[in-house]
């Protein structure tokens, strides 16, 4: 479905008004997404997970230096194709709830997403209503402005927007941040259901523990690099089947595992 080969991205920063430097934010990132699969990208903050999402959709502003190959459905994913496909074949569930228009009620926003994806206008309104119902938003939620929605409801509105677009690849950027367990499970279940329909879901998260039940593959990122891609089933016990020290340390630092870094992994963690 989607393959990323040796993606390297450099973004500018300014040490003063006139001096521009380039910071390498993604280095040699490669990964492969298959239909019907939830692929989790897990990493520390600043690992470049969100940048990866934005690079895939072509949302990063110029100037930038980007090299490497992106292929979507066996054709190169160029900037022009990204522009054409995003919101249709490629959908992003953004991290920031600021992505919602603060002056527009939720059903209207979802219907915009539907018409962008090619629904006729009357049809779009219907589809939006159905999608919101599907994600358990009641009449009040459908008619609410973004500031009236809780974090979980807003996230489900954003998921509904991806849902109505019938996209084949859904990139969910930190969809479960700040949600209570019930809401989080609803949002994650919604993503798992999209994968069951044969779509690919790229789940970007730092929340390894809750990504595991729905993901098949897990890629760990750190400081712009892919550290390891492992099966979700490798994360169990003390994580002995994981290839890298970083993966084991991450696993053991979870509050319901050791909530600590074992000394052996600490030494390897430097890498």
């Amino acid at each position: 479905m989607l393959s990323i080969e040796h993606l390297t991205l450099q973004l500018p920063y300014y040490t003063s008004w006139w001096r521009r430097r380039w910071a390498e934010v993604l280095s040699d990132v490669s990964l492969e997404l298959h239909p019907g699969e939830v692929h989790a990208v897990v990493g520390a903050s600043g690992a470049g997970k969100s940048l990866l999402a934005h690079a895939l959709l072509g949302l990063l502003p110029e100037p930038k230096h980007q090299t490497g190959r992106l292929t979507f459905q066996n054709r190169a994913l160029t900037a022009a194709r990204q522009r054409q496909l995003r919101g249709r074949e490629l959908a992003l569930i953004p991290q920031s709830l600021d992505a919602l228009d603060p002056l527009v009620r939720s059903q209207r926003q979802v219907s915009w997403a539907a018409s962008r994806a090619g629904h006729a206008r009357s049809d779009a309104w219907q589809a939006a209503g159905q999608a919101l119902t599907h994600y358990q938003l009641d009449e009040r939620g459908r008619q609410a402005f973004p500031h009236e929605l809780s974090g979980g409801m807003a996230r489900r509105v954003l998921t509904a927007m991806a849902h109505v677009s019938h996209a084949q690849l859904i990139i969910a950027d930190e969809p479960s941040v700040g949600l209570d367990p019930q809401q989080r499970n609803r949002v994650l279940d919604a993503l798992a259901a999209l994968a069951l329909e044969g779509k690919s879901v790229l789940l970007i998260t730092h929340d390894l523990r809750h990504a595991l039940p729905i993901a098949q593959q897990v890629t760990l990122m750190n400081q712009g690099r892919c550290i390891e891609t492992a099966c979700a089933s490798a994360f169990r016990g003390d994580g002995d089947t994981l290839a890298t020290g970083y993966a084991r340390a991450l696993w053991q630092a979870l509050p319901d595992n050791h909530f600590g870094v074992l000394t052996t992994t600490q030494a390897q963690n430097v890498a």
Binding site: G43, G178, H206, G260
Partner: peptide
């Protein structure tokens, strides 16, 4: 208030 909810396990720790 949820200060570590956006952090990965290592940074959270």
């Amino acid at each position: 208030d949820e200060i570590s909810s956006m952090l990965d396990p290592l940074t959270q720790l």
